[in-house]
Design a binder for these strands. Structure first.
Length: 496
RNA sequence: GGCGCCGUGGCCAAGUGGUAAGGCAGAGGUUUGCAAAACCUCCAUUCACCGGUUCGAAUCCGGUCGGCGCCUCCA
């Protein structure tokens, strides 16, 4: 394995090495399920999906753990608001989350631990920290004592003195009297009257936000594991606190490599639930093929911001997402090309001849993704590959033209690699192309049946060599965005 | 205030010491009854700006300007 990844802890691009040879143990922070996934979540989990796919495609066994946070103040608040049981609300949004991510082609993690099923591990870890002198009880709460962990700040590259100086303006007015130090954080929060709570040696309450990930990652991957990932916003305080509490408890290094992805931005500002400037994945799926969103997320390096644009009408309604539309055309190109390759008849395949290197997409993707998952560069290679495949198909369709068998075989393997490495081109070409076409037609109020009728009308005109009439039909359809494609097998149509 | 990131053609975006990938848009062409699709050709002497290091810099160093993130729930 020669994958190199940018590691937040060392702030360097380093070879990714697993403690157990050939087996990568990975933990990624999952969602808090109180609402639908938005595009920021989609981007994040596509990144880790590509990481996992690439490791598997290059022969590494992967144990991919991604938690579901189903106990959280926001879930409790939202459930109360709706008069729904917190567990039901969480289960509902967890299911929606799975559906939304499956539609962009993400594989399910191997293990998806829930906080609600790890209360024992969490309480044990808290108890261990208290025993070790790293945590203290205070009025029903339990706090981690940051001064008890000398490396506090090593992940996010800041020190306690700076943190306290910076935070002072914000924390002075708050009621933080239970904490010994403003930077201390809750491991266990005591319940107020009427709150949903779980029993503990420190009284009824619920886990602090950070402790769950330490408890669950250790439960499923061991006290030390290979890679921990999540959004850039988790570096501090979430991951910093995870490092502190985990290493304080075990005395061992927690995760070896730390990977963080950049945000989706709108108007140069981070898309987030709290700012309310987000589009949910499922809303966008109504306008564009989900795979196009996957493609779009790969047009930018995973650590860089992904800036989203849209167009508005005079009333301020969203009329489109130009970047998704462009990406959708690229997705169409992927599938059209694959379909052309699959349709090369046996009689047009020649035994002799060699394949050009441009068809060796697998080798290119492996090399490129090995370099810190350089997906934009990977897409550049995909573009050159698809061009070469079309050249091959053009050659095979010319008079007396043939495609070398070696080329056809390599091209087919290229599509297999595209799926294995990037999770693109995974669907049946005809089905997805028709779906894209019909969705665009519906958006313009065009009935496929009507188009078929006009095509038949034009076919008759052409048979009579009445080309003026045939062109009238073509032009009329073109004005509605319908494009006709003549071939010896008949006429097909697509939507521009 | 502390820590950190970014500024590459009309737009998006790779590239972190060896002479600017790829996509979109645009121009011309092959093909076609005409088209579309596909393919071919062209499209940054230049990488925010100013200095410096070097045989050589978009890439390293210093400074200036501009934009953003984290420090508070957040992917």
């Amino acid at each position: 394995m020669s994958l190199r990844l940018h590691d937040t802890l060392s702030d360097q691009k380093l070879p990714f090495e697993t403690a157990e040879p050939g087996h990568a143990r990975i933990y990624v922070c999952g969602p808090t399920v109180y609402d639908y996934a938005h595009l920021g979540h989609v981007r994040c989990y596509v990144v880790y999906d590509v990481l996992v796919r690439h490791l598997k495609a290059t022969g590494t066994r992967v144990t991919y753990v991604r938690n579901i946070t189903d106990i959280d103040d926001k879930i409790l608040a939202r459930a109360k608001e709706r008069g729904e049981a917190p567990t039901e609300l969480a289960a509902r949004f967890a299911e929606a989350f799975h559906q939304d991510l499956a539609r962009v082609g993400n594989l399910r993690p191997d293990i998806e631990p829930k906080v609600s099923e790890h209360l024992d591990e969490i309480r044990d870890l808290v108890a261990r920290l208290i025993e070790g002198g790293h945590a203290y009880e205070a009025g029903g709460d339990v706090y981690f004592d940051v001064h008890s962990f000398k490396d506090y700040g090593k992940l996010s590259h800041r020190n306690l003195a700076d943190l306290e100086a910076g935070a002072s303006g914000r924390t002075q007015g708050d009621d933080k009297s239970k904490k010994r130090n403003p930077a201390d954080f809750a491991l266990w929060k005591g319940a107020a009257e009427g709150d949903v709570s779980w029993p503990s040696p420190w009284g009824p309450g619920r886990p602090g936000w950070h402790i769950e990930c330490s408890a669950m990652s250790m439960a499923h991957l061991g006290e030390s594991f290979d890679l921990h990932g999540g959004g850039l916003d988790l570096v501090f305080p979430h991951h910093e606190n995870e490092v502190a509490q985990s290493e304080a408890a075990t005395g061992k290094p927690f995760a070896t490599t730390w990977m963080h992805n950049g945000f989706v931005e709108v108007d140069k500002t981070k898309m987030s639930k709290s700012l309310g400037n987000f589009f949910t994945a499922r809303d966008v799926y109504e306008r564009v093929e989900p795979e196009a969103i996957r493609y779009f997320t790969m047009t930018v390096h995973y650590r860089a911001p992904l800036s989203l644009d849209w167009t508005l009408d005079d009333d301020g309604n969203v009329t489109g997402f130009p970047q998704f539309e462009e990406a959708e055309r690229r997705v169409e190109y992927v599938y059209q090309t694959r379909q052309r390759l699959e349709e090369i008849p046996e009689s047009r395949i020649a035994e002799d001849g060699t394949a050009p290197e441009s068809l060796n997409l697998r080798a290119g993707l492996v090399r490129t993704l090995d370099d810190d998952l350089n997906m934009p560069q990977a897409l550049a290679q995909v573009a050159e590959f698809l061009k070469a495949v079309n050249e091959l198909c053009d050659a095979a369709s010319r008079k007396k033209g043939k495609a070398p068998k070696a080329s056809v075989t390599l091209a087919r393997d290229g599509f297999a690699a595209l799926e294995a490495e990037l999770g693109l081109g995974v669907e049946e070409p005809r089905a997805i192309l028709e779906r894209i076409r019909d969705r665009r037609a519906a958006a313009r109020g065009i009935e496929p049946g009507d188009v078929e009728e006009r095509i038949e009308e034009r076919r008759r005109a052409r048979a009579d060599r009445d080309f003026a009439r045939a062109d009238e039909v073509r032009d009329a359809l073109a004005a509605q965005g319908v494009e006709l494609h003549d071939s010896p097998e008949g006429t097909r149509w697509t939507m521009r």
